[in-house]
């Protein structure tokens, strides 16, 4: 099963840092996501995109995860040569992850 079948995500950016939320459609799936979607697994999945470390935050009250990915935007929004300088489309790269 792919992650997009049970969860949604939005990407944000600050400089060279990328943030990816991961939100289960059903709050009952939150615990399972906490167990299965570790920062190590996300780092392995996005290894061609994220050069730095990934920190995972657990927001239990809203049953959501947030992955803050450092050194992830080819030097930063304002100086990258990429087409998608903000990395806004990377939320859908995360959702391609197999679980």
């Amino acid at each position: 099963m792919k992650l997009f079948e049970i969860a949604h995500s939005r990407a944000g950016d600050k400089g060279n840092t990328l943030m990816l939320s991961l939100i289960p459609y059903k709050e009952a799936d939150y615990e399972m996501l906490c167990t299965k979607i570790t920062s190590e697994k996300v780092k392995a999945h996005l290894n061609k995109i994220v050069q730095g470390e990934i920190i995972r935050y657990e927001l239990t009250n809203i049953s959501s995860l947030l992955f803050v990915c450092y050194n992830a935007l080819s030097g930063g929004v304002t100086t990258s040569l990429a087409l998608d300088t903000h990395g806004k489309s990377i939320s859908y790269a995360l959702l391609q992850m197999e679980i």
């Binding site: 944000g12 939320s21 939100i23």
Partner: peptide
């Protein structure tokens, strides 16, 4: 609301503005 609450947040325990260091982890929706 959940997608927007977490949008561009570097650290949900400490969201810095000039007015306050806010904690988003205590929010209920």
């Amino acid at each position: 609301a959940k997608e927007q609450l977490l949008y561009e947040v570097m650290n949900p325990h400490e969201y810095f503005t000039p007015d306050v260091i806010a904690d988003f982890t205590t929010v209920h929706l």
